[in-house]
Design a protein around this nucleic acid. Sequence first.
DNA 1: AACGACAAGATTGTCGACAATATTCAAATA
DNA 2: TATTTGAATATTGTCGACAATCTTGTCGTT
Lengths: 239, 239
Amino acid sequence: MHVKHYYIVYNLLNTALRFTMSIFHENAVTASDKAFFRLRKEIVEGEIPASAKLSETELSTKYEVSRAVVREAINRLESCNLVERKPNVGARVVALSPEGLIELYQVRESLEGMAARLAATNMSDDEVAELKMLLNSQSENIKTTERYYQEAGDLDFHYRIILGSKNNHLINMLVNGLYHLVRMYRVQLGMAGPRVSTAFDEHKHIVQAISNRDPELAEMLMRRHIMYSKNNIEAKLQQ
Amino acid sequence: MHVKHYYIVYNLLNTALRFTMSIFHENAVTASDKAFFRLRKEIVEGEIPASAKLSETELSTKYEVSRAVVREAINRLESCNLVERKPNVGARVVALSPEGLIELYQVRESLEGMAARLAATNMSDDEVAELKMLLNSQSENIKTTERYYQEAGDLDFHYRIILGSKNNHLINMLVNGLYHLVRMYRVQLGMAGPRVSTAFDEHKHIVQAISNRDPELAEMLMRRHIMYSKNNIEAKLQQ
DNA sequence: AACGACAAGATTGTCGACAATATTCAAATA
DNA sequence: TATTTGAATATTGTCGACAATCTTGTCGTT
């Protein structure tokens, strides 16, 4: 009992920021890993702009590694939907478009809805408790803290539910496949939005549904939540 | 008008078999492409058994190409969820497990449900007409033709709806990411099922919903359809 | 006999060079 | 002047060799 409680408290000490950092700072064992992480970071954060050409030789001199590791990094970026590659021509960073964003959010709605549904069944009581406490800690900081932390908190929330689904395909698709692209859109199109307080209420209701072990409701609320985000972003794009 | 009609008839001449072949026989421009397609085929059809180790040197001698192209092929297989790779250790063909199959079908339910929803909005009238005619041609052959064609027909049906969603993320995830794994399970676990006639009725209802431009219903019916398939398979696994 | 350290072998990771393909740009032709 | 041909250049694709890491099996110690 003591141990369990300590565990929960300890986890809460991993604030949203630290947690979010850990998501993206996987441990790189090989040189291709490092190149992959670095390149991904530079693409997501816009240091290498959207639609830019990725020259293998150029990158290999810049990163001081051989072309082979750059090639492998680019290949991995391609499976993350962050770059597009044409045979005998080369690779480009993906172009960001309103249509692409819509498509991305449609897939998110589908997959994260299913994640919430599965999480309602598969999350342990401890994980649900941690999720609740995360929300509590966020509600206290919601006025004082700056926007970046709110962003991180949002990612944290979604990330935990995705992991809570316990479905490896789902987890892989979302974490490795879509979320970096989502982040790229957010960073580069300046999507931080207000919508924090309303989104926070939506988060609370989703957690409540998961806590009640109500898969149908959890899915529906998550889908709505993402749909609202999408609509919010669409509205901003048309300004 | 003439042209349009001719086009539809012509498409119908591409029977389920030919259509399905075309799905998997993409044109390979580079050597890595060929190695990738060949390796994928051998894995899906069980020539290289599940959970088998993939030795780069061994495959490079077998295919008579350099290790680099085998490496790239294996990397691509990894993003298709057909092999798993560990740094400095090597790659193995994925293991087939009942749990893995369940997870796969959960993701399919989510994504193909969304595909049906989007198809109800985004498919052209012509595409809907072709889909209807495809079903008609299948209903005539359903008793006479052998099982393989029914399998192909099923793939064909789902494939058209996926394409009809017009959502590139969705299409890519399903066609390049999940369907070969689905096929691998079907081939290797001998999932062909009867369930043809009932499944066929479900197909008809889904097409009807799409034809009525009813996204909600189309999604719900597609999800149920896949859920039934999953249940059917689960039942067989426990025999 | 069980366990751990160490060496030998095998496999993957990385590199630089060469081959094949695409792009660019200048010259020739209509 | 516009268009096409063709050579020159640059980029990607493929290869074989070497380096780094893991695996295997033997030996020695407890």
